[in-house]
């Protein structure tokens, strides 16, 4: 009996590892292809695509594509723009959406159920349908800047940030998480004399680590991958983000090696961000049942 069960366990383990390896391969190979291709000259890159050599660092390997990519486009500027826009949006979004969710979850005010429903309903509206009206709106909005009052937000960071700060999904994630917190904790803090903001800041947010990580990663990915919106609201190179910058590389004869080099560079912040928050992210998915 013991033999059989040991064998069974071995077999099960083998199957499990086989499946995991397969899944890992499916996810890793495109990345591998991208990085390897970025190291090869155009002719070899295209020739290698017909064999497994595409995934191996073989042949004429060099960093030439990176040099060329940096020469073709202001990669550093694009990276700074994207990181700035993404970072600020993520931080603002966490603050605004968690405060809104706090209000929905803990404060009692008339109509909060209806308003929450309306906010959740916005989840089913595709961005493409509101892109043009939003463009018309932001092109006329006022702003008080260094030069006093001005109108129109085009070609700025703020036009890339502000419309994306509040969103239904992030609010929903926070509301769900907050509702699962023990009510007595909030009541105890109130009895102890905490104001609502102190309850939010000292009790609720310190306990919201997993949902903060989830919301941050989801927002980060959305913002870092922004393409359509910056494409239509930003014409100046100085505030252009990385995804729009990709357009610099698609010409009559696309230099695929440079494209791959560019992609490799702009993927790095995503990997770094994800690795940092990975543990909290997994804990959050396990506890909320929300998939990223």
């Amino acid at each position: 009996m013991a033999m059989v069960s040991a064998e069974n366990r071995g077999l099960r383990l083998a199957v499990r590892y086989a499946v995991l390896t397969l899944v890992a391969i499916i996810f890793i190979f495109p990345l591998l292809f991208m990085v390897m291709s970025s190291l090869k000259p155009q002719a070899q890159l295209l020739a290698d695509t017909s064999s497994l050599r595409a995934f191996l660092p073989v042949g004429d390997i060099s960093l030439q594509n990176y040099t060329d990519a940096f020469r073709r486009a202001p990669v550093v500027t694009f990276m700074i723009n994207s990181v700035l826009v993404t970072g600020i949006t993520v931080l603002l979004s966490l603050a605004v959406c968690s405060l809104a969710a706090f209000s929905f979850a803990f404060l009692e005010w008339k109509g909060r159920g209806v308003i929450l429903s309306v906010i959740l309903a916005t989840l089913i509206i595709p961005f493409e349908t509101i892109a043009i009206p939003l463009l018309l709106m932001v092109s006329q909005l006022p702003w008080i800047g260094w030069n006093g009052l001005e109108f129109g937000w085009l070609n700025t960071y703020r036009v890339q940030i502000i419309p994306w700060v509040a969103d239904g999904l992030t609010i929903f994630l926070f509301v769900q998480y907050f509702r699962d917190l023990p009510r007595e904790l909030i009541e105890a803090a109130r009895v102890e004399g905490a104001t609502w903001f102190q309850v939010y800041w000292r009790v609720v947010m310190p306990l919201a680590g997993p949902v903060i990580a989830t919301a941050a990663i989801l927002k980060f990915l959305v913002m870092y991958n922004q393409y359509l919106w910056p494409l239509i609201v930003v014409q100046q190179e100085s505030v252009r983000p990385v995804m729009v910058g990709l357009g610099y590389f698609f010409q009559l004869n696309t230099a695929w090696g440079e494209v791959m080099a560019y992609l490799t560079v702009i993927t790095l912040p995503v990997l770094a961000f994800y690795l940092v928050l990975q543990r909290a992210f997994i804990a959050s998915i396990a506890s909320t049942g929300v998939k990223g």
Binding site: E184, L185, R190, G193
Partner: peptide, 17 residues
Amino acid sequence: APKDRGIAMVFQTYAIF
């Protein structure tokens, strides 16, 4: 408000942070 009533409360579930 609770804090202005001069009370302190101990909960069934302890409610410690």
